[in-house]
Design a protein around this nucleic acid. Sequence first.
DNA 1: TACTTAAGTATCAAAATGGAAACTATTACT
DNA 2: AGTAATAGTTTCCATTTTGATACTTAAGTA
Lengths: 139, 139
Amino acid sequence: METITDNQKLRVAKKLKKMFGHIDLKTETYCPIRDVMALASDKWSILIILYLGYFPVLRFNKLKKYVYGISNKVLSERLKMLEADGYLLRTMYAEVPIRVEYQLTNFGYSYLQKLLELTEWATSHGDTVIKNRKKFRSA
Amino acid sequence: METITDNQKLRVAKKLKKMFGHIDLKTETYCPIRDVMALASDKWSILIILYLGYFPVLRFNKLKKYVYGISNKVLSERLKMLEADGYLLRTMYAEVPIRVEYQLTNFGYSYLQKLLELTEWATSHGDTVIKNRKKFRSA
DNA sequence: TACTTAAGTATCAAAATGGAAACTATTACT
DNA sequence: AGTAATAGTTTCCATTTTGATACTTAAGTA
């Protein structure tokens, strides 16, 4: 079982208060969690960013191999959006055949650091989730 | 500009190596990032978990108000999945009208701690993303 | 002339997702 | 009998999101 200390709870409460004080809850003003996270925590975006963290530079087709299951269309879409938001840099070399390299910006790298907290948690708790699901289904 | 120290880069590389060593990249074995994160980093799930962190207990309609824009269908769907995966607890009181309470489990709380790293980052970098987008469009 | 390769784009059908609105169950109250 | 409230479920339709496949561009090579 997970144990959570009172100290941890306090820290979390503090962070939440700060965050929720900053964002307006009721009205539909701009909400970074809805906007920024929508792209950056997307299933494919997460994988793209992680692989670009692992391999400093990747080309389109290489990336597509690592992020298996993604289609040309979706990959190029996500790359364009991630570039637009500033997470990554696209460099095109006018060779033949053309060569394009993708790499994280410092901004993207800064995001990756936080993202890692989450993906590490996910990899170490994946089995628990599976167990929970089974228990739930059989209940 | 974001500055990233070599020290930070080293730490990130270490984490990535550990994660990517653990998961098999090439074959399609079970991948917690694809599976666990798919639900837990979903747009609506994030908001649900954050609000359940902020308010220790919430009922269906209250939650729906906070997570504005979500429909009955999607909210009840997400709640069921989050319950199944073990993030939250659903308690039903056989009163009339019926009363149902949702709250985070310790497991869900443990996830929330990591999630906060990301949402805090997002709230403090939302303006940068907006700026980046503008720059990109006008380039 | 045809072929090759990288990095996409274009296109169209298929599938998944989403939202709106109506409906259900239950018991007490008027 | 009709109304009210909560917590959903159901239905149906529209929009979004995918996925697969073919196509493009450019220069060098066989």
